[in-house]
Design a protein around this nucleic acid. Structure first.
Lengths: 340, 340
DNA sequence: CGTCATTTTCAAAGCGCTTTGGAAAGCGAT
DNA sequence: ATCGCTTTCCAAAGCGCTTTGAAAATGACG
C-alpha cells in the first residue's frame, strides 16, 4: 500500500492524505479522521526512502566504529550505551545504524555518510587524546555529539562526558584518608582521553597529599580481567607492594580481586580496591551492598543525554555546541578499608 | 555533488554515468575510466535514499530488540555479535540498524520495516522457546535469519546455532568421568531456547550416568555475577553440597568462583566448575591456560555466519531455509578436577 | 443574493537515482 | 555505397513521497 493507492481508495488527492497524516493544519478534522482510519485499516506506512528523498532527512543516526581498535563495540559498555541512546532516539523517530570501518577510512566513511544522506548526524564514541575525527567532523559540517572529550582539541564541539579527573581524584583522596600511601593505578589505554584524565586526577590527588607517584605502581592497558589479575599479582609480589588499587573497570577489578585472593590476602582488609563502575545492566557490582567501592556513572544515562543533544544539534545546527559534564558518585562497598 | 551535475560536468548523460559507476558492460572502458576519475575528483557518492527508491533495495539489515527484556542488547554478547555481523555485512555493502521496541509492538515494527522498505532483512536474536516472532516473520515474508533456534516451532526457518544440548551433555559427562555425582546446574532463564537445550543436555547426561537430577541443585536466572555467587553459596552451604557446577556464562562463573573462595574452598580441587564461554573479546577466560574449563563457542563467528546467511536469503529468497549447527569445543582449564 | 475572506482540496513539480526502449555511431562484409 | 550487427550513448519514465501555487468549496456579512 502506498500513498497513491491510499488516496485513490479515499477519493482524495495525495496532497491531502499526506498532510492529514503528517498533522498539517490545512485539513479538515473530519477528513483527517477518515484518512487516519483508512491508513490503519490498510496498514499503510510511508516509504521511508521516498520520504527521506522528498524531505532531505533520513531520520537516522550513524555510528562509525574504527575496526582496528578494540576500544569500541566489542567493548563491554557498548551494549548499554547503544540501548539507551537508541531508545531515546526512537522517541523522536530516529533510527540508529552502525558502520564498522577500517581505521584509515574513517574520514571517507563520514564523508560518504553525509553526501549519501544516509544519516542526519553521528555519535562519536571513545575519543582519544587529540582525536582527529573531531576536527574532521567540524570541517565536514555533519552534526555530531561526542561521548567523552578529547584533550588537546581546542575548537569547540558538543560532548557529554563524565568528570573522570574528579572521580579518580576523589577516589585517591579517599584512599589517602584511609591511610594508604602506596596506591596503584591500573588504568585503561592512556591514549584514550578518559584514561588520561583519570591518571591526571590520580596524580594530582597524590601530589596534594604529598605522595609521589611510582612508575612501578602504574599500568595502562585494555581493561580485561587477566590484565587486572596479572598486574595486581606482580605488584603485590614486589617489595613495598601497594596497599590499594585504583582500577579502571569492573571487569579488571574482578581480576584484581582474583589476584588478591590467590595470594591469600583479603580484599578490603589487606588490600583496598576502588574501581570505576559504568553501572552496566548485566554486570552488577553486587546487590544491596556493592562488592567494590566504586566511582559510579551510568553509561545508559550518558547514552540518553548524547542522543538528546544530537537531536538538538540536528534540528538546529546553528546553536553553539553543548557540553555536559556528569559527576560520578563515589559509592562505598566492601573493598576498601583502613591501610593495614 | 549529484548525478546530474556530475554528468553535466562530464558532458555525458546521467544514464551513462550511472552505468559506468555501477559496472554495467554497455559503456566504453575509456569513458568508464573518465567517469570514475571525475567521481573521485568531485567526491561523488550516490544518494542512498534515491538509489534505494529506484532499486527497491535499502541495503540495510534490521535488528528489532524487545524493550521489555534484558536478554538482548544490554547483554554481554551483544557487542561482539553485532561487531562481527556488521563487519560481514559491510563487506557486501550492507549496513545494520537497530530499533528498540516495546514488547507488544514487535510485530508492528517488523511490518513497518517491511512496508517502509527501511530494511531488506532482519536478524532475530535470542529466541525463546516457541518464539512467536518466527511464525510472524514467516507470514510476513521479510527475509531473516535467527541466531539460535526455537524449540517447538515446527515450520522451517533459517538459523545459526550452537549445539547447546551436546555441549552441556559433554560437559556433564566429563564431570561424571571425574567422579562427580552431585553436579549443580546454574542455567540461564529457561524460557530462552538455549537454556532449555542446555538443561536437556545436562539431564540426559545425568540420566545416562545413572544419576538423578536434584531440584535443589538446579537454578535458572539472568546470568549475572551475583546470581552465580548467591546460588553457589547457598548450594554449597546446604547438606550434601554439589562438588561441581555447570554454569551458563563466564560472568556467572565469576560469581561462583567468588562464592567458592569465600567459603574457604579451592576451585578445581574442592569444587569443580565448567562454564559456557562465548569467547568475548573483552572478557577473556584467562590467557594461555584458561581459568575455567569451558564449553567454548565464538559468538563472533556466529555473527559472521548469520550475516552471510541473511545476505544469501535476501539475494535469493526462494532458496530453502539454511541451518547451521556449530559445535562448541570443550576446553580444559584449571577449574576442574577429580571429585574430592 | 452577491462579495470577499477563509477553509479545504488538488495538480504538478521535484527530490536523485535506475532502467527501458531507442537512436546514433562504428565497423566489417558485401 | 549499402547493409547488418555491435557498441556506445541518450531521453524520458518511474520509484513514493512532500510541497508549492492555485483552484474550488464554504461561510460570513451587508
Amino acid at each position: 500500500m502506498n500513498l497513491k493507492k491510499l488516496s485513490e481508495e479515499l477519493g482524495l488527492s495525495q496532497t491531502t492524505v499526506s498532510r492529514a497524516l503528517n498533522g498539517y493544519p490545512e485539513v479538515n478534522e473530519k477528513t483527517r479522521a477518515r484518512v487516519e482510519a483508512a491508513a490503519r485499516q490498510f496498514n499503510y506506512s510511508p516509504n521511508s526512502r521516498a520520504k527521506g528523498l522528498a524531505t532531505g532527512r533520513s531520520m537516522m543516526i550513524g555510528h562509525v566504529i574504527p575496526r582496528s581498535s578494540q576500544h569500541e563495540m566489542v567493548n563491554p559498555i557498548f551494549g548499554d550505551f547503544v540501548a539507551a541512546a537508541s531508545e531515546a532516539l526512537a522517541a523522536h523517530d530516529y533510527g540508529m545504524m552502525f558502520a564498522r570501518v577500517d581505521n584509515q577510512r574513517i574520514d571517507a566513511a563520514y564523508t560518504a555518510m553525509q553526501s549519501n544522506g544516509t544519516v542526519d548526524g553521528v555519535i562519536l564514541q571513545g575519543p582519544a587524546v587529540e582525536d582527529e575525527r573531531i576536527r574532521f567532523l567540524n570541517t565536514l559540517g555533519l552534526p555530531y555529539v561526542v561521548h567523552g572529550r578529547s584533550s588537546g582539541v581546542t575548537e569547540p564541539y558538543s560532548w557529554v562526558d563524565v568528570n573522570n579527573t574528579r572521580a579518580f581524584g576523589r577516589a585517591t583522596e579517599f584512599l589517602v584518608q584511609l591511610g594508604h600511601t602506596r596506591i596503584a593505578l591500573l588504568n585503561g589505554v592512556e591514549k584514550m582521553d578518559f584514561a588520561t584524565r583519570r591518571r591526571k586526577g590520580y596524580l594530582t590527588a597524590l601530589g596534594a597529599a604529598g605522595l609521589s607517584a611510582r612508575p612501578d605502581h602504574m599500568a595502562s592497558s585494555e581493561m580485561t580481567e587477566p590484565y587486572g589479575f596479572r598486574q595486581a599479582k606482580e605488584m603485590l609480589a614486589a617489595p613495598n607492594p601497594p596497599t590499594a588499587f585504583l582500577v579502571a573497570s569492573l571487569i579488571t577489578a574482578l581480576g584484581v580481586r582474583r589476584a588478591i585472593q590467590d595470594m591469600g590476602l583479603v580484599m578490603g582488609r589487606d588490600v583496598s580496591v576502588i574501581t570505576h563502575d559504568d553501572d552496566l545492566s548485566y554486570l552488577g557490582n553486587g546487590e544491596d551492598v556493592p562488592i567494590f567501592t566504586a566511582t559510579r556513572s551510568s553509561v545508559r544515562l550518558a547514552g540518553e543525554i548524547v542522543a538528546e543533544a544530537l537531536i538538538d544539534r540536528i534540528t538546529d545546527p546553528t546553536t553553539p555546541p553543548t557540553n555536559r559534564l556528569l559527576e560520578a558518585e563515589l559509592v562505598l562497598g566492601g573493598s576498601t578499608g583502613p591501610a593495614p
